[in-house]
């Protein structure tokens, strides 16, 4: 039963990733990513990582995906929504991807790591302890990063900085 659910979630993950990779419509690609992200949260639960799974949904679905959809909706005006994400240079990309994939499979097959049978534990409290003891410096640095981020995003979208040029006409001949 557990294996069956795992296989379903894995299939959904792969399906979402492939939709993101091969869809010609940017909105479908974003939806595929959404599917993949939610399914990966499901995989985290299989790995006894409930806190990370919930964080994944909170931050990715509630934050990143909404931002990406915002970006798509604000920037795709006038385009044909079914072909605004064309695939260019598929052959070299396939080659490189295959190389990476084979490399990954090779590494997995010959890693020689010893694996234990994983145990299911409650993680929330211990993650808190780890964040505030072993990883206190990165944790604080992340907060600095987020402050920089807020300031940076604010500066970037300031009115004076954006030099509104004459909007160039869309080049027709060029793809």
């Amino acid at each position: 039963m557990k294996d069956g659910i795992f296989l379903c979630i894995a299939a959904v993950t792969v399906f979402g990733a492939l939709v993101t990779a091969f869809s010609r419509s940017i909105i479908n690609a974003a939806l595929g990513l959404l599917l993949a992200l939610v399914a990966i949260a499901g995989l985290y639960i299989f790995l006894s990582a409930d806190f990370v799974a919930v964080s994944q949904i909170l931050i990715y679905v509630g934050g990143v995906m909404v931002l990406l959809l915002f970006g798509i909706m604000l920037t795709s005006g006038g385009d044909n929504i079914f072909s605004n994400n064309p695939i260019m240079g598929a052959v070299p990309a396939t080659l490189i991807t295959t190389i990476f994939g084979l490399l990954g499979i090779y590494v997995v097959n010959t890693s020689g790591l010893t694996f234990y049978q994983g145990a299911y534990r409650a993680t929330t409290r211990d993650i808190g302890h780890f964040l505030l003891r072993e990883y206190i410096l990165p944790f604080e640095l992340v907060s600095v990063l987020i402050v920089v981020l807020i300031v940076g995003a604010g500066v970037m979208l300031r009115k004076e900085l954006v030099i509104v040029r004459q909007a160039p006409q869309k080049k027709e001949g060029k793809k």
Binding site: D50, I57, L58, V61, G62, V66
Partner: peptide, 25 residues
Amino acid sequence: NLDTGIFYVLAMASFVVIGVMMGGW
């Protein structure tokens, strides 16, 4: 009785945002 209770509730509310945005678009 989820261990991540209230955090989970905050997370699930984000599906509403996505749904409303999709419906509108």
